[in-house]
Design a protein around this nucleic acid. Sequence first.
DNA 1: TATACTATGTGATTGTGAGAACAAGCACAT
DNA 2: ATGTGCTTGTTCTCACAATCACATAGTATA
Lengths: 214, 214
Amino acid sequence: MNRMNFIKPAIPETTLRRLLYYMRCLRTYKKDGVKTVLSDNIAKKCGVKSSVVRKDLSYFGEFGVRGKGYDVDELCHKLDTMLNSLGPINTIVIGAGKLGTAIINHSKENFKTNIIAAFDKNRDKTGKNINGVPVYSLDKLEDIIKENNIKIAVIAIPPCEVQPVVDRLVSAGIKSILSLALLPINVPEGVEVSFFDVLSEVEYLFLKLNFKES
Amino acid sequence: MNRMNFIKPAIPETTLRRLLYYMRCLRTYKKDGVKTVLSDNIAKKCGVKSSVVRKDLSYFGEFGVRGKGYDVDELCHKLDTMLNSLGPINTIVIGAGKLGTAIINHSKENFKTNIIAAFDKNRDKTGKNINGVPVYSLDKLEDIIKENNIKIAVIAIPPCEVQPVVDRLVSAGIKSILSLALLPINVPEGVEVSFFDVLSEVEYLFLKLNFKES
DNA sequence: TATACTATGTGATTGTGAGAACAAGCACAT
DNA sequence: ATGTGCTTGTTCTCACAATCACATAGTATA
Ligand SMILES: NC(=O)c1ccc[n+]([C@@H]2O[C@H](COP(=O)([O-])OP(=O)(O)OC[C@H]3O[C@@H](n4cnc5c(N)ncnc54)[C@H](O)[C@@H]3O)[C@@H](O)[C@H]2O)c1
Ligand SMILES: NC(=O)c1ccc[n+]([C@@H]2O[C@H](COP(=O)([O-])OP(=O)(O)OC[C@H]3O[C@@H](n4cnc5c(N)ncnc54)[C@H](O)[C@@H]3O)[C@@H](O)[C@H]2O)c1
């Protein structure tokens, strides 16, 4: 049963993406001791229109006071509670190289995501910790996934190595894979794959620049 | 003058993104010696519908033969020519740490993007090469940008360091910034900023999973 | 308490992209 | 030469997301 059914209609995917951004922005306000914010403050910081912020928040409830704005602590708390009610955001990273290490370190600053473990096939890397995250050999893959009920995995290994690992991830119960290798992946129905690539983004920005310039 | 004006109407941003993916996919076909492909072959590999592939390609011209499909070499060549006509895709990376290094190495495999230089404020890192890419101190920033007419920069330094660097990038003529630090950035009108973050994506996938499960 | 003011929340409208269905055109066999 | 089969290119429809406009409900002030 979907524990988020109390959220009435289907929530746009774009709204979900922005929501995470708002929350990070709110945490900053909170840290800076700001008491109240207007939808327009959040909007400016996140580069969207204030009406978008209000509409997005309205999918989850009424948090503001008309004529006044939003209480930062309260809004933060309510959104966090909602997120926490979905359970912990646990994940694993495959590949403890430069990229994998950078991601693990990154997760220690200001994120909700817990990286439970990393995996590497190189014996020099296994058995150690990276910033508190244990690095295991691939033997342990299935056990760790099942013990921790992991549903999401991040892949940061060379492209040619990807498919066999994906197959193991899927049969161990992973439902969503984020691949940093830009290689098409075969997965059965019901498993979601997304790709993530800095250089693709650069190339996209390049195309965009070339369309806009006068 | 926009050198891509021959592309008639405004091309959807989603189409531009997918186009890059198609091209990478086609390069693989070419390398594997495949002669012709159908829109459906490309579609399956890229995880979209065949009608989307055809529509996307149709923004740029007619490349296929009805009843037969697309000639891989020809399609590759025509798309590459189009891309090349826009000039080289040059960029720089700020921060030669784990992440910056991973990106530089990554750029050597199968991408159109040339990373012209990296910059770091740590004297231990400057003056060396990473996989053929020189690492300079920040002193050289403006010179390199202007000499090479760089328009796009990738930022891979700690969040607290970002804003001053951004200011320098902007006044040196950078038009598009890809930040890997999730901190709101102030830039003048006309400069585009995008953010890119693996862990945000994980959190988004988490939300999506929680909305879909039965 | 009344009045003006301010910012939220939401219903209505517009715009845009995805998908399906169909028309068009080429290759090949007969 | 002509017909058949196949896949492209394109049109049309639908769904969804962004935007707008305004009613709503609080605050502040006199
Ligand atoms: N998407 C992006 O933006 C992006 C950016 C940089 C790099 N990359 C990709 O990420 C990959 C890793 O980059 P890196 O800089 O960390 O490289 P790296 O060489 O530093 O690390 C790769 C690690 O993966 C491990 N490994 C290899 N095969 C494995 C397997 N089958 N199972 C488990 N571990 C395995 C290696 O032992 C090594 O520790 C690169 O191949 C590149 O394609 C993607
Ligand atoms: N968006 C993502 O997906 C993602 C993933 C991993 C890390 N990160 C971010 O990227 C940053 C870098 O990660 P890393 O693992 O490479 O860290 P790192 O410590 O290995 O490297 C940081 C590098 O930046 C250099 N630097 C610091 N300040 C600088 C300045 N003002 N100008 C030029 N260079 C400067 C340092 O000398 C160092 O070499 C992290 O702070 C993290 O926030 C983002």
